[in-house]
Design a protein around this nucleic acid. Structure first.
Length: 453
RNA sequence: GUGGUAGUAGCUCAGUUGGUUAGAGCACCGGAUUGUGAUUCCGGGGGUCGCGGGUUCAAGUCCCGUCUAUCACCCCA
């Protein structure tokens, strides 16, 4: 027996149908928002990833040396490859660029529920627009990528935050650069850390002032709208310079929220500065989407996450290009949609099932099968000769709308009997008109007949 | 990478203090059924009890290791 590699999945037809449905809806949502699809290689040079994330990343990659001696890795994410593509052509492409991709990503880490070694992800990114209009557009796309399946503002929420505001606030307390990023790292984990441990981790940055800082953070985490943000942060601006910067940033908040509200997305947005995203390269607005339980509480793993990363492309050696993007994984999304009853059972049904007699009748019946299929009608029939009773059972199980009966009686008269498997109605047609007649029956059905002959 | 829990048929599970040839339901296949389907009845295939070792007269059951799954850490690109 061969087992699958840990963290990888087989997709049986039913699973595959679900997955394709997911991809189709995602793809429609992205296109509908004006995004263009692109693609990148599955295998990339190892240093593409180590340059962005540091050498530690290797422990989490599927990497090996290829036969040409190159160090390579299966892509764990799209961003570096995307940065390469964008960086190479950004000067000559009309801005803004709005690109999306749905592809498999790999990471070598201990698999857990909702977190495998291979997963598919929808990625949408906008390049070349530094203003909050791009953030609004991206968040709108992320919302649509979930909402298109059926969930509403009662089922999920976008927690919207801002690393710029955090950095300005930390600057006002005298922390910048690495130290500020360190503090953000603690804030990122605050939801999962007991108070004591959180305070401990803040000690290197705030010493005895950690209690005061923690109290301020708790206040910040409770802010839920732009006016509250303004009141708090302007109230804590220590000088004119920072005050001006904070005012500027608050104006961008207002624009972002107004754009989203104008698109009817207000109910999906929750201002929540508790989200900072673990990654150091995020620069401005960041968000994560969480499912809501019936009582309105947040639960589980993030369904999607994203934000602005204005310096990443430049850092990778390409022209400085403002960018904002999000990713949404298939594993958590499928779980969520199933839980909310938004993934119907995908059963692939034929349109017609052809019941065949033996000998000459089978030959004529197969000719009809060929004609129907050429006309684009999904047609199924038994691959070997079996009894009529059995064939009708198969027809019923197949889920086909119509059964066509081509037995010896019909064959002798160049006829086909057509039975509506839903109503039980049955009529005879001439084989020469079969395709047109069956198209009509598929649309309109056949009324029940009292005494089928 | 660290620690907790679990693993019996395709699926859900039963299996007594260790004791004969490991069972059930569902699913699948065949028949009743060679001209009319979702019901019913009968039958069948399927298991190295995750894998390897140990204790024992005897192991699905106890012990050790290992793999896999899952949970909590680490991490989350």
């Amino acid at each position: 027996m061969h087992e699958r590699l840990p963290g990888f999945r087989d997709f049986y037809p039913e699973d595959c149908a679900k997955r394709n449905f997911l991809f189709r809806v995602w793809s429609d949502a992205a296109r509908c928002h004006g995004f263009h699809e692109y693609d990148i290689p599955t295998l990339e040079p190892l240093n593409l990833f180590t340059e962005k994330s540091g050498p530690e990343i290797v422990s989490q990659l599927f990497n090996f040396t290829d036969k040409g001696g190159r160090e390579v890795a299966l892509r764990p994410e799209l961003t570096p490859s995307l940065a390469r593509m964008v960086g190479a052509k950004v000067a000559s492409l009309p801005k803004p660029l709005k690109w999306f991709n749905i592809a498999e990503n790999f990471r070598y880490e201990k698999p857990q529920e909702g977190r495998l070694r291979s997963h598919y992800q929808l990625n949408c990114d906008i390049f070349g627009e530094p203003g909050p209009g791009a953030d609004a557009e991206l968040i709108a796309t992320a919302i649509a990528s979930i909402r298109s399946f059926g969930p509403t503002e009662k089922d999920f929420v976008v927690r919207l935050s801002d690393r710029t505001l955090w950095m300005l606030f930390l600057a006002s307390l005298g922390h910048e650069g690495e130290a500020a990023l360190g503090v953000l790292g603690v804030i990122d984990k605050l939801e999962r850390l007991p108070r004591e441990q959180a305070l401990e981790r803040l000690t290197p940055y705030f010493g005895d002032a950690r209690e005061d800082f923690f109290a301020q953070v708790e206040t910040i985490l409770s802010l839920r709208d732009a006016p509250s943000l303004a009141t708090f942060f302007l109230g804590h601006a220590p000088n004119a310079d920072l005050r001006a910067k904070i005012e500027g940033r608050l104006a961008e908040w207002t624009t972002l929220l107004e754009n989203l509200r104008a698109m009817g997305l207000g109910p999906f947005i929750r201002v929540d500065l508790g989200i900072v995203r673990g990654l150091a390269y995020y620069t401005g607005f960041v968000f994560e989407i969480f499912k809501l339980d019936a009582d309105g509480t947040l639960s589980g793993r993030a369904l999607a996450g994203g934000g602005r990363y204005d310096h990443l492309i430049g850092k990778l050696g390409f022209p400085e290009t403002p960018a904002v993007g999000f990713g949404m994984g298939d594993v958590t999304m499928t779980q969520f949609l199933e839980e909310r009853g938004c993934l119907p059972k995908m059963i692939e049904k034929p349109d017609v099932f052809v019941v065949l007699g033996g000998g000459e009748a089978r030959t004529l019946g197969l000719a009809a099968v060929g004609a129907l299929r050429s006309a684009g009608i999904r047609t199924e029939y038994p691959l070997r000769e079996v009894g009529f009773g059995k064939q009708f059972r198969l027809a019923g199980q197949s889920g086909a709308r119509l059964a066509l009966i081509v037995g010896e009686n019909e064959a002798a008269r160049h006829q086909i009997r057509v039975k509506d498997l839903t109503s039980g109605g049955e009529v005879g047609i001439f084989a020469s008109h079969a395709v047109e007649a069956i198209r009509a029956f598929l649309d309109e059905g056949i009324p029940p007949t009292d005494s089928p002959s």
